[in-house]
Amino acid sequence: GAKVLACPLNACPVSGAERTSQEIWESFSQCFTPAVKEVVEFAKGIPGFQELSQQDQVMLLKSGTFQVLMVRFCTLFNAKERTVTFLNGQTYPLSTLRVLGMGSLLDAMFEFSEKLGSLGLEPDEMALFMAVVLVSADRSGISDMQAVEQLQEGLIRALRSLISRRRPDDSALFPKLLLRLPDLRTLNNMHSDKLLAFRIDP
């Protein structure tokens, strides 16, 4: 009856049989809801984002929120040590998580965390990258495509100039950073498959 909870925004990776799905969901949402709200507040601060229609803002946030959260929390996945830190502050080794059934999505998160971490971004560079991640998310349901494209182009230009100003001799850094965008799309698709299987028992 115990339940495995793969997302590190949960207190820990296993919940006892005595706890109902509703109880598990409510404690998870105490972390998840503020984390999503933080992404929305972050998006409001992106120059030009609030000029999009309300519906387009919602659509972009719906398709981009998990990708932004994956960047925001990627340091919970320590690729070097092969551990994941859950909300209780404890780290769990890969061996334990494997036994619990965690597989390709976990491996992909480790790989992503390693690649992004190796770029050594400053906080403001990471924030600008997260803005690019959000506006580069899937555009199904977007009504004003041109406005989103212009927003994306402007943010990518800003990211390129910030990075080349900071590290003029590292011309490979910016392309490496943009290569993380398809990684995030893949992670998001894998994560969506898991979400489809997620149910809160009535």
């Binding site: 809801t33 999503v36 309300q54 929120t65 969506s192 979400l195 489809l196 809160i200």
Partner: peptide
């Protein structure tokens, strides 16, 4: 194509946060 994020009520959280009134408990 059903919406995976709907399992978590993501759109509801986003809409409320955009309108700035997430203070009251989600229903």
């Amino acid at each position: 194509y059903n919406d995976p994020a709907s399992n978590l009520g993501l759109e509801d959280i986003i809409r409320k946060a955009l309108m700035g009134n997430l203070e009251e408990r989600p229903d």
